[in-house]
Every structure is written in C-alpha cells, then in structure tokens.
Design a protein around this nucleic acid. Structure first.
Lengths: 334, 334
DNA sequence: CCGACCCAGGAAAACGTTTGAACGGAGGCC
DNA sequence: GGCCTCCGTTCAAACGTTTTCCTGGGTCGG
C-alpha cells in the first residue's frame, strides 16, 4: 500500500503539501496540486484512516451498543444510526450485548479502546457501574437510546411510551373495556415501566375492576400468568408491552384456544411487520425506530459541538395503528 | 487519558516492559509485573487500539457491507456476523448500501481506508468495478454473503437456494399444482436467479402448463403482472422468491380479493416472523441468516490463516416450513 | 530602494504503540 | 578465571499521518 511519503517523493514535494491537498487545509499552487494529484493517481494511494485518527486523535466513528441486533425494532434503530452516521461522514462500529451485563461492559470497553468519537447505548436491563460511569466521565459523549431514564447524566433519545400507552388505553376504555390483562414484562427496563405507568394513568379513577398486570423476566411465567388470568373469562382485552411479549401472549392464547378478536381484544407495542396482511391484524403502537436511531446521532453531533450544555432528552412520538385485533371485538351482552 | 509512557514512568520501567505485560508477549519477572499492574491500576490506563492498530498494521476489526440493514433477514445476518466476530475478539464496522451501487462503493472505500482485517459483502444488485476489484486485489480478504455467484475470485457464503426451491416446487407439484405464478423479482440478483432456476429444475419435463414467471425490479410492475396472471383463474399457486416480493404479492391478492389458501395456494422464501401466529400462516423456505453471518466470519478467519488456498463457497441448507398457506388449498373439482 | 508583510512550501515533531536489537548481570562449563 | 549463554530489561526505531514552526522569495507601500 502506497503511503503519503511515496506520493510526496513521486510528486517531488513534501508530505505536508500532499496532506494539504488531500484535506485542503491550506492553499496550494494549482501546478503543484496537479503534480500531487497525478502522483496519487499513479500510486493508487489511499489515505490511512488509522494513522490519520491517531494523529488527529479523532476517529470519525461512533460506537453503537444494542441489546439485541436481531430484534426488528433494534435492527431499524441500527439502520437509522448507520444512515445518519454515514450522512455525517462517520462510520459505525456495532456491538451487541444480548441483554447481558458482562457483554455490554466488554462492548463498551472495546469501543472506548477504539476511541470512538461518541457512543450510543441501547442498554440492557441492568448495566455495570463501569458502563454507568462512562455516561458521565469526560470520555466521549454518550447518548442513551430507547431505554431512557430520568436524571441520566447524559443525552437520551426515546419514545413517548407513557403517553402512547395512555392514549391506547384510553381508546380501549372508550370502546368499553374495563377488564384488562397488561403483559408488562421485565419492569427493570425503563421502557416497560413507562408503558405500564401510561396504563395506570389511563385507568386512574376509572373502575377498571379486575385488571391484571403481569410482570416478570421469564416467558413461561408470563404465559402461566396469562393462562390463569384468562381462565375466568372476565378479561376483555390483553395489552402486550413489547413485541416479544406479544409473541408470548399470542402463543398462549392460541394454545388456550382463545381467539382474537372474537373472544378477546388485543393490542401491543412495536408489533409485527406487515400486520395488515394477516389475521388477526394487530393493533399496534409503533415506535419510529429508524428516526430514533437517526435522532441519537443528531444529539451526539450537537453534544460534540457544545460539550458543556446540560443533558437533554428527546422523546419521539409513536403512532397508534388501530386494527381488527382490538376493533373487531364485540362485547357480549350478558 | 493516561498513556503507556506514564504507566512506565510510574512503574519505573521502560514502555516495552509495560507493553510486554499488557500483551504477555515475553516473560517478565513477577516483581516488575506487579509494579506495572499497580501503575496501570493507579493511572486507569486503557490501551489505545488506534495506536496499537497503527503499529501492528492490524485493526482487529472486520467490515460488513449490507444492502438493507432494516430487512429482518439482513438484520439476522448482521447479528450473526457480530456474534461470531465478538467471539474472535474482532469488532464489527457496519455499513449499509441501501441497494445502491454508489453507496456500496463509498462504503467499501471507507472500510478499506479504516484498514479492516477482512470484509464481508452482501452486495447490491450491481456493484461497481472498484468493488469487484477489491474482491481479487491483495488487500484484505473478502467474503461474499448471501448473494453469491459462481466463479467469484473470493470466498462466499450462501444458501442452497436452487435446491430449496426445487424441493419446495416438487412438494407443490406433489400436491397436484400444475399452474404456478412465480414472483421472481430482480433477476440480476444471484439469489433470485438461483431460486428461479430451482423452480425450472422442478418443473422440467413436467407439463406445468401455464406457469408464469414475473421478473422485474419495480413493485408496481410486479403487482400488475400478478393481477393479470390471476385474472384468468387458472393458476393454483403463487410462489414468491423473497420476502419483499411476498409482501407485494399478498398485497396484490388482498386487493384483488383472492383469498389464501381458499382461492389459491401461496409460498415464499424467507417469509415472516412468527408466521404461525397468524392467518394465513405462510409456507416458507427459511434462510439460516444468523448462521450464514457467522459462517462468513469463519471463512474470513480461515482465509486469514491460509491466504493462498483457492476460493471456496459454502452453502447452508434452508429449512422448508410447511404451513396452511400451501397446505390448506383444496383443488376444486371441475 | 528598503523594510514589512504575504504566500507557497518544507522540515520535523508529534500521536501511542510494538518490537527487534542491544545490554548487563548472573550463572554454568571447561 | 575466562568465556559463553541465558534471561530480564531497556533503547530506539518504526507505523503513516497532521500540524506547527520556519524559510525564502516576491510584493507592496512609503
């Protein structure tokens, strides 16, 4: 691989001149510029980003740690981050924590070692203190994505989970539902806490008689709970707080031969792609995952431009997509 | 940020000694090792991967260019690549080409500039010559992922598309279908060529009377073609060659009020997640996307170990998941 | 005509590591 | 006791850039 000195030698100029035409960071006489460009052409020279990063102590890259790269919602976030980064001329270094504290720690460590210019974290349910320290240390700026929490010492991008869940629940209340099963899942995850809070906001002061909230990290426990809750036949609506939970709930209901929406209504957060092509087509609160990723990059850029301003939090609005899983349910007259 | 020289100074040893305990690349007296470790502890020193990469001319990273990071199948590949890379101690630099030749070229260029140790490419339908040259140049080794083609000058990992399509088609022939609509899509993409070829293998010598093959890059054209093909009511089965094509086909059929599987059978490649929860549940040939990504990393490692051996191609077997979209269709007696 | 200033370009010092060569002391062998 | 070897350690040269400071010639104003 040709280096800048070979180019310089061939063009009979100094390496600094070559560098200056490469980055145009100083005026250089048209004649010499041409010599340099010719030499670059002839040698097939390509700038070495590693050496460049070393000298400038700036890698033009950002790190992204995501808790499950396979999950469609996260995949869209990755996509959004990549896109926005590319637009800014930054490359993306991706790591996956698989919802595991240790892996997350190692991932953050490697990314910091690689001297990324900024870090975007979609954290797993519980982070190590090492990770939490990097959020406030004077290392590269950190943006928390999706799983945000109040009072974090860094910028954050999330969705308006609480408000969306409130809207969804209010809509369902409007349709006459009073007895819900809320499949809330792992309530260590801020996102799920917020969604649960939104439900509580909505039913506050309304006699939502026998609503059941299912919390837990284990799918089988959740399913058992749901089966139990469905058994008495009083619930008219199931709300799942995330897509994996929706899968569990739908599986459980299929196995229990409870049909949606004939026997019960159903709605979920960040549901299934192309849901309108299938039955039951699922009422969904959809996260603008791509935009959230892009927004995180935006915050990172602003933070790099203004390091001292106090941390901010951006909440993107979610879309409520009403479909037959909730709209098709008709209340039985007693 | 503390550097290795500060550690050395504090420990009253040379930087080389520090380096040697860091990488344990040479024996060092327990006493001095302890001094060094204490100094590292005290300074909070972290190795600088950029400087290290520069000196060793090895970045311990691999580049992945994918044509659509949002698409679930590609997301799973990304996931697989990330996982396998992490296991090997490599970090992943991700770029997205959005099925665009220019972006792909730029992505490859950036990754090469970053001196990745290897490159995995899920190429877009048509690559620039620059990209094709990197496949054979003596730069970092390249592995082609998913979209493979015979005679490529580098390693490749794909699925057994042709054989899988042959099996699927044979199964459908067994069930009595003779008149197919094959939604083949962009037949510049090797994957889709292979799938189409598999269909042709299966119907060879069988009077598959009026089968229609729809090729094209434009969804609307595809849909128009499909509507036309469905109009005469002779076709008994639609096969989509990829998930986006399946979406188009299902939309078209929904709009034309052709019901699956009552009016017509349907099957697709790499279909929809959790298809068994919905109606129609879709018969699918499922790519082992995660494994393909992991396998690509594996090939890369082997290639790095043995640079001179001739290019190889690995095909992973796909799983045929039979569901009601094809099994539910009952032939009408004339 | 001379000093001040401007401008294009060059020399060289970083950036933080790794690593081959050199070194010095201890021990073993004859 | 001299010599060789071994072993732990240090020295210093890379790796490929960017960037500060410097230089020498030209221009312009007085």
């Amino acid at each position: 691989m040709a280096t800048i000195v070979e180019v310089a030698r061939l063009a009979r100029v100094s390496t600094s001149t070559v560098s200056h035409v490469l980055n145009d960071t100083r005026n250089v006489e048209p004649a010499t510029r041409k010599k340099v460009l010719d030499a670059i052409e002839k040698t097939g020279y390509r700038q070495d980003a590693v050496a460049r990063a070393m000298r400038r102590s700036k890698t033009d890259s950002i790190g992204l740690v995501v808790s499950d790269a396979g999950e469609p919602a996260f995949a869209e976030m990755v996509h959004g981050v990549e896109h926005a980064a590319a637009v800014q001329g930054l490359t993306l270094v991706l790591a996956n924590s698989s919802e595991d504290t240790d892996r997350e720690t190692r991932a953050v460590r490697t990314l910091l070692a690689r001297r990324v210019d900024g870090l975007i974290l979609a954290r797993c349910p519980v982070s190590s203190t090492e990770v939490e320290e990097t959020m406030s240390s004077q290392g590269p700026p950190v943006v928390l994505l999706d799983r945000v929490f109040d009072g974090a010492p860094c910028d954050q991008v999330g969705a308006d989970n609480r408000e969306s869940m409130r809207r969804l629940s209010a809509h369902l209340l409007d349709r006459g539902h009073r007895s819900f099963v809320v499949v809330a899942g792992d309530t260590r995850v801020p996102t799920l806490i917020e969604r649960l809070a939104g439900f509580r906001d909505a039913v506050l002061g309304i006699e939502a008689e026998s609503s059941v909230v299912l919390e837990g990290t284990d799918n089988d426990t959740i399913k058992r709970g749901l089966r139990h809750a469905l058994a008495d036949g009083r619930s008219t609506c199931v709300i799942a707080a995330s897509s994996p939970l929706a899968v569990a709930a739908l599986e459980c209901m299929r196995d229990a031969e409870v049909s949606v929406p004939r026997d019960i209504a159903f709605a979920t957060f960040d549901g299934f792609n192309h849901s309108d092509l299938f039955q039951p087509s699922i009422t969904t609160v959809r996260q603008p995952a791509f935009e959230m990723g892009a927004a995180a990059v935006g915050m990172l850029m602003e933070r790099l431009a203004a390091p001292q301003t106090s941390p901010r939090i951006t909440r993107l609005q979610q879309r409520l997509e009403l479909r037959s899983s909730s709209e098709g349910y008709v209340f039985r007259r007693p």
